[in-house]
Write a protein that binds this DNA or RNA. Structure first.
Length: 277
DNA sequence: CCACTCCTGCGT
DNA sequence: ACGCAGGAGTGG
């Protein structure tokens, strides 16, 4: 489900409920996530206080101290929500973590993931987290002036189609299938163009377009078309604002020509033949 | 590079 | 029954 904006929305909505909370017992009902998880691995966190929630691309982590925390990747269908402890469990609830606040000990953090492409990973060394982050390029939701040049340079260095290059988390972290297509539209570039065919100016424009579509999506609390929800279980409304994603046959919002669908790397890309060159 | 894999659910 | 799905890794 979730790309950078959805993960960021989960992070923000999670923050007030977990920062300052003490973690209690972990209950793991299904260990076969992308990385197998056991209740035993949560043992070092029993009684620990969460001090922050951070994010880089689609990777999010609860911070306990300089060395320890719990990272979460939502995969395609992961949901991380805070619910009353006595709330009915949805199907595919794999991990539950008790949250003990000074004045409210009735909530728990739940990880739900039907397809189990995601993971919840307790870590006890900063190196383990840094190793994960080392696989990621600059975070698309916090691109500095230097970062946008780094992204543009990476785009120009590959012969792959620009839309596929945008999906590569080493190029820019947090862009997924929705926003890769949206970024190509905003930059007015044909998604099948080779990265190496872009001028420096076009590559920078594409990096900026990616940053812009991600930022706009955060304003709308993410894109929900099937099962993405924030930490409170609420859907996002960015789906109403997309230019091309899943709009095959519908009129381009700029020129009214029907949006087309092509398959790139076994994934759908939506685009406007007139607006994008 | 590409095809294929993990897994479940939904719409046609 | 089949194709498709917002992610990401592997092996050829």
């Amino acid at each position: 489900m979730p790309e950078g904006p959805e993960v960021e929305t989960v992070r923000r909505t999670l923050l007030p409920h977990v920062v300052g909370a003490r973690l209690g017992r972990a209950i793991v009902s299904r260990k076969a996530l992308r990385t197998p998880v056991t209740a035993r691995r949560f043992a070092p966190f029993d009684g620990a206080v969460v001090i922050d929630v951070k994010r880089h691309g689609k990777l999010m982590w609860l911070v306990v101290d300089d060395e320890r925390g719990i990272w979460v990747r939502l995969g395609m269908t992961g949901q991380l929500t805070v619910v009353p402890r006595d709330a009915q469990r949805k199907p595919h609830t794999h991990v539950r973590l008790h949250l003990v606040h000074d004045n409210n000990d009735n909530n728990e953090l739940r990880y739900v993931d039907p397809r189990r492409f995601g993971e919840v990973v307790p870590f006890t060394s900063r190196d383990a987290l840094d190793e994960q982050r080392a696989q990621l390029g600059p975070d698309g939701l916090s691109l500095s002036d230097d970062d946008r040049v780094v992204v543009a340079t990476a785009l120009r260095k590959t012969d792959r189609a620009i839309k596929e290059a945008l999906l590569d988390q080493r190029v820019i972290a947090g862009v997924g299938n929705i926003y890769a297509a949206e970024a190509c539209f905003v930059a007015r570039l044909n998604p099948e163009r080779a990265g190496s065919s872009l001028s420096t100016k076009q590559a920078l424009a594409l990096a900026d377009a990616a940053a812009a579509v991600l930022a706009t999506a955060v304003v709308h609390n993410g894109t929900s078309f099937s099962n993405y929800v924030d930490a409170m279980g609420r859907q996002g409304d960015n789906y109403a604002h997309v230019f091309v994603f899943q709009r095959e046959g519908k009129p381009c919002r700029v020129c009214a020509r029907p949006i087309e669908r092509v398959v790139q790397g076994a994934r759908s890309t939506f685009w406007c033949r007139r607006c994008q060159r």
